[in-house]
Computed example of a mutant assay.
Amino acid sequence: MRTSNAIAKGRIIASVFLLASIGISVYFGISAWKWHSDFYEWIDATPMQMTVDLATPSMHSAPFTQTCVMAHGQSIYVAFDDPDANDENIGEYFAGLQGTVTIRDLTGAEVLAKPFDATGVRLWGDDPMLVGFHPFANGDYTAEIKIEQGASALGGTQYDLYARNELCGLELMPAYVLGAISALAALIACVGGCYTVPSIARDGFRVQVPDDVG
């Protein structure tokens, strides 16, 4: 029986599928790694820092660099070094304090405004949280801290204020999902490669088929 070479369409399709699986695995793997890396950068980030006199009515401003719209919240903390401060008495240090934090975009338009006072101050970790708010779109902004009424107990010293992203770990979920997709695509590529690669290595992309008999 006479035969001739023909293109092995099945092997070509299998090769395309194999390459696509590898590409998907690499793409989602890189995306998972980047998300994981970004998460820990968000934890360590301080979008804003400024020095403020909390005892005297005044206005202060500083750049606010927003990079984490994924956070479930953002807060402004006071760097506070007093070993006697605790959850029960922290409000006494800030008694009388009243003010407002305002975030403005580069055109000066108000993005958010949030009042704060002594009753809302809570000790979170090492430092007291002055005020919290929901994240806004990524970008460059200006944060304004207006002290409308000062806390007399904090007189004589200026305090460093800093912003922090509030993250609980759920924000890492997309990284795990992306990683799972990458692993699944890699598994499919490995299984498919076990059949496709040896076949192509042995016979190439052509197959022997019998000629039609006229």
Rank of each mutant, 00 (worst) to 15 (best):
M1Q: 07
S4F: 03
N5A: 15
N5V: 06
N5K: 11
R11Q: 13
A14I: 05
S15R: 01
L18K: 04
L19P: 07
A20L: 15
S21F: 02
I22W: 09
G23Y: 13
S25P: 04
V26G: 00
Y27I: 11
F28E: 10
F28Q: 14
I30T: 05
S31H: 06
W33N: 13
W33D: 14
K34W: 03
H36G: 12
H36Y: 14
S37P: 00
F39S: 08
E41W: 05
D44Q: 15
D44A: 15
D44L: 10
M48F: 13
M48I: 14
Q49L: 12
D53W: 00
L54R: 06
L54E: 07
T56L: 02
P57I: 03
P57C: 03
S58Q: 10
M59E: 13
H60T: 14
S61V: 00
A62I: 11
P63M: 14
F64G: 00
F64M: 13
T65F: 03
T65C: 04
T67K: 14
C68V: 13
C68G: 09
V69T: 09
A71H: 05
H72S: 12
S75L: 12
I76Q: 07
Y77I: 01
V78R: 04
A79C: 01
A79R: 15
D81I: 07
D82Q: 05
N86Q: 04
N86W: 04
G91L: 05
F94A: 12
A95C: 01
L97C: 04
L97G: 01
L97V: 08
Q98N: 10
L106G: 08
L106Q: 15
T107H: 03
T107N: 12
E110D: 00
K114L: 01
P115S: 11
F116P: 08
D117C: 11
G120V: 07
V121W: 03
R122N: 10
R122S: 10
G125R: 02
D127N: 14
D127K: 01
P128I: 12
L130N: 04
G132Q: 08
F133K: 00
H134R: 13
P135Q: 05
P135A: 08
E144Y: 15
K146V: 10
I147F: 10
G150I: 00
G150H: 03
A151W: 02
G155H: 08
T157L: 01
Q158Y: 01
Y159K: 05
Y159C: 07
Y162L: 06
L167A: 04
L167S: 09
L167G: 09
L172Q: 12
A175E: 10
A175L: 07
V177I: 14
L178H: 09
L178D: 11
I181V: 15
I181E: 04
I181M: 11
I181W: 00
I181G: 06
I181N: 03
S182A: 15
I188P: 01
A189I: 11
V191W: 05
T196P: 05
V197P: 06
P198H: 03
P198F: 08
P198Y: 06
I200K: 01
A201F: 10
R202C: 03
D203K: 15
G204C: 06
G204H: 09
F205T: 08
F205W: 12
Q208D: 12
D212F: 09
D212H: 08
V213Q: 13
